[in-house]
Design a protein around this nucleic acid. Structure first.
Lengths: 145, 145
DNA sequence: CGAACTTATATCGCGCGATAAATAATCGCA
DNA sequence: TGCGATTATTTATCGCGCGATATAAGTTCG
């Protein structure tokens, strides 16, 4: 049968369930760090570049301030970051890693390797697939904007 | 730099953001149907095969019954499905489409096409990518189990 | 100068999704 | 018969994600 409305033919279903599957692999690793999945991504973004603004982070992570602000507050109360208003522009809030937040990077350094291993693929193959998925995301984002 | 902890190198980040991007494309289409994204997937599974059990649906959708039960209750109170205990095995709850639920399929028939269009790819290309993502999901699920 | 506009973030409200743990009902088998 | 296994529900908790709106700070321009 060539039913258009067949679950297994849905790219959205593939992405949705792959996201869940990733989440389940990450869960125990991130529990050990005291982070949720989106929090982890925010921390990765900050490890990559400290001192980003809320807006800048949101742009990178594709999240609104209404999602990010409470998430960042949780990271702050966990002691991993500080939120400081910029002195040049008082509208802007700059996010800085605390010492503990910086130390957490060392504990997190092994996580990506675990994922690669769980995927059963080599890094190059994953990189290729990742690029394809990013291309899909970009096309979809363009169509909405 | 070849930093392992770089956001753009994360397959998880690609999947996570692609999932959001898909959600944003779907949102207006599903709003018109009165469905959320996971509810839509459950309905697709039921259009594909009516009369599935909660457990069976959960297996297909990779969701626990504790996630599915409230979701299905919402679909029931929306009038799209009925939940009936099986007479053969009274532990089992069978989900059946209501007439309205069946009619909804006609309204939903155009949705996948919109997504293909938004992706800017042809169907064959999407199918190939979809298969790759499914393969990733299967590998990840295997590693957890 | 100051009114009007823009930008950056925060707040509020909402619903949902996801999980864990406890409970209940039923089934099937030794 | 009785007990472990199965199936689903319940309860409680937590966080995510968004839209709408508010607040406050900066900017522009008459």
């Amino acid at each position: 049968m060539q039913d258009q409305l067949k679950l297994d033919n849905f790219i959205c279903f593939a992405v949705y369930t792959a996201s869940h599957a990733l989440n389940r692999v990450y869960k125990p690793l991130l529990d050990a760090l005291g982070l949720t999945y989106p929090q982890y991504l925010a921390m990765v973004a900050l490890w990559e570049q400290d001192g980003q603004t809320v807006g800048g982070l949101g742009e990178k992570l594709f999240l609104e301030s209404s999602t990010l602000t409470p998430l960042l507050k949780r990271l702050e109360s966990a002691g991993y970051i500080r939120r400081e208003r910029s002195s040049e522009d008082e509208r802007v809030v700059v996010i800085r890693l605390s010492d503990e937040g910086k130390r957490l990077k060392e504990k997190a350094i092994g996580v990506p390797g675990c994922i690669v291993e769980a995927s059963g693929r080599d890094a190059a193959d994953l990189t290729r697939l990742q690029a394809e998925i990013v291309a899909l995301r970009e096309a979809l984002n363009k169509s909405v904007a």
